[in-house]
Design a protein around this nucleic acid. Structure first.
Length: 303
DNA sequence: CTGACCCGAC
């Protein structure tokens, strides 16, 4: 009953559970069985290669081998490989590939995911002007920046301690009708907290809730991290306690932040207590991954 | 069956 679709699902699963080589092994079976590959499965192969840190092979397949397999790369194919190049700190190479894609004039062209990926890559590498050029270019080419584009730009400005410019961008996006989301406000709040500008952070927090947005675990964690960095771990701990008392489940990052705070201030007894409560409460991220894997295995067997 | 952004870390 195995069709190319079931292999696609299985390979995707291997990728998500961090077993890209296994996914590639399944693709080997697809080839041996003589099943006809479609563009989604070919793109999943790219994803597996990228996950296995074999980006150059992914580029080669994207540019040369996909047509041999009888399919045309689509926007997903390009975006996945571009992301991998950017993750490897080769954003300029990603931009070159983006240019090649534009010149192909095929069925699809770079979209908002594409630009966001490469802009983010440039910001991460400190290539601010290249990132800004792309920001302007996308709008000119009829791809308006969305909430992600603005959020990652605002994040870069905040990390460069340019809070005034970040604030300007926030106003600009609202003016252009792009609604800020939790991420947008989280990076602003984190920016102000990092600089110890608690008052401004509070303003952002109130603006966020006024917009009907609900602060999430990232909001709280970054707030706690800033408290710890300013030698106020005790307040961070009180915050943590009130959160858990309200039934909010801390995640691994939140524990790490508080543990690191305790460690910095030499509160070793508190560290041990927290460590023990961490072990009993546990985190479910790993088991969730396994659930995903199992349900997809079932799909395969039923197919 | 597929893609982009925020919190830690040494």
């Amino acid at each position: 009953p195995s069709t190319i679709f079931t292999y696609g699902i299985l390979m995707n699963c291997c990728c998500r559970t961090r077993r890209p080589e296994l996914g590639l092994a399944f693709f080997g079976r697809v080839l041996r069985m003589g099943l006809r590959t479609n563009v989604v499965v070919a793109t999943t192969v790219l994803q597996c290669l990228c996950g296995a840190k074999r980006t150059d092979e992914a580029v080669d397949i994207l540019l040369h081998r996909m047509s041999e397999l009888g399919c045309v790369p689509d926007d997903f194919s390009y975006n996945i490989v571009l992301k991998s190049l950017c993750d490897d700190s080769r954003s300029q190479r990603a931009l070159d590939l983006l240019r090649m894609w534009e010149n192909e004039r095929g069925v699809c062209s770079p979209n908002v995911y594409t630009y966001n990926t490469v802009i983010h890559g440039f910001f991460k590498e400190g290539e601010v002007s290249k990132a800004c050029n792309l920001f302007h270019e996308m709008a000119q080419k009829g791809v308006p920046p969305n909430v992600v584009t603005y959020s990652l730009t605002i994040d870069a400005l905040c990390k460069a301690r340019a809070m005034d410019k970040a604030q300007l961008f926030l106003r600009q996006m609202i003016h252009k009708g792009v609604r800020p989301n939790n991420v947008t406000y989280n990076v602003m709040i984190h920016g102000y907290c990092t600089l110890g500008q608690w008052k401004e952070a509070g303003k952002m927090f109130r603006e966020m809730t006024r917009q009907g947005l609900i602060p999430d675990i990232v909001t709280w964690t970054s707030f706690m991290a800033s408290l710890c960095k300013h030698g106020r771990t005790k307040e961070a701990a009180e915050f943590f306690d009130s959160m858990t008392a309200k039934g909010h489940k801390p995640d691994l990052v939140m524990y790490h932040v508080l543990l690191h705070g305790y460690a910095t201030e030499g509160c070793f007894a508190d560290m041990i207590n927290l460590f023990n409560s961490m072990a009993t409460k546990g985190t479910r991220s790993v088991s969730r991954c396994m659930d995903l894997f199992n349900s997809n295995i079932c799909t395969l067997q039923n197919g």
